[in-house]
């Protein structure tokens, strides 16, 4: 029990450090939020459909907007640790690589939650999409999709962090790996908005399995990626 508490405490301090750095010198989050807002406005204004159909389409498209805005975060997730060789210092602390992976995953998850905290109300107001009409299932979709995206993103970001052309390679690798989450979350949201909770639940199950698999893979592979 004590070791679990220590593990959680260390992870929380690692997350705290990353959030504090972003708060002190905002580099990524303002760009990410601005991009998310512009993309959602552009999408909303281009779709000319009857109200009920538009609501469904936008529910799905919201995930594409979230995905593209979120890729901004991935570039800096590990790159920030390269300044002043802080990554070396991190490996000199008595922390396991699993702790570092999970902490980065949580930061990634929180970044996604921040985009959603902005976009969900924005879409509800701008396009009258009743995203919170079934708040419980919608929240479950958000959590499962965020976990899946964060797990994939953290793994790929660590893989490309030492490369000179990180940004381009990162997107190329993340796109195919994260597409099941984007498609699954879009389908689950559209089904929920269309009044088909059974179908939405099936997609949610798929998202949960994907998230569990990639969190597990990340914990297993992170050590080898870092050593390479």
């Amino acid at each position: 029990m004590n070791s679990i508490t220590n593990f959680a405490r260390t992870c929380s301090w690692l997350v705290h450090k990353d959030l504090l750095r972003e708060l002190r010198a905002p580099r990524v989050w303002p760009t990410m939020l601005l991009l998310g807002m512009i993309l959602s406005l552009a999408v909303e204004m281009q779709i000319e459909l009857p109200r009920d159909q538009k609501q469904k389409v936008l529910g799905g498209l919201m995930w594409l907007v979230i995905f593209f805005a979120w890729t901004v975060v991935l570039n800096r997730l590990f790159a920030g640790e390269r300044d002043e060789s802080c990554w070396q210092a991190l490996l000199l602390y008595p922390v396991t690589l699993g702790m570092i992976y999970l902490a980065k995953l949580v930061v990634n998850f929180l970044a996604l939650a921040a985009i959603e905290a902005l976009l969900v109300p924005a879409l509800m107001i701008l396009a009258d999409v009743p995203l919170l009409a079934r708040a419980g299932p919608f929240l479950a979709i958000l959590v499962a999709a965020n976990l899946g995206l964060a797990a994939v993103g953290t793994l790929v970001s660590s893989l490309t962090s030492g490369l000179t052309r990180q940004a381009s390679l990162l997107v190329v690798l993340v796109l195919p790996l994260a597409s099941p989450v984007v498609i699954g979350a879009g389908q689950a949201t559209v089904a929920l908005l269309g009044g088909d909770p059974t179908s939405s639940f099936r997609w949610l199950q798929l998202l949960s399995v994907f998230a569990a698999v990639f969190v597990g893979l990340g914990l297993l592979l992170f050590e080898f990626i870092i050593e390479e």
């Binding site: 301090w13 750095r21 002190r24 010198a25 060789s85 070396q88």
Partner: peptide, 25 residues
Amino acid sequence: AGHESFLYLELTAMENLLFAARMHG
């Protein structure tokens, strides 16, 4: 301590040391 400082330049001196102290438990 190496050639580079291993410090987070955005954080204060206090925060840098607190982070290191917490990492060491």
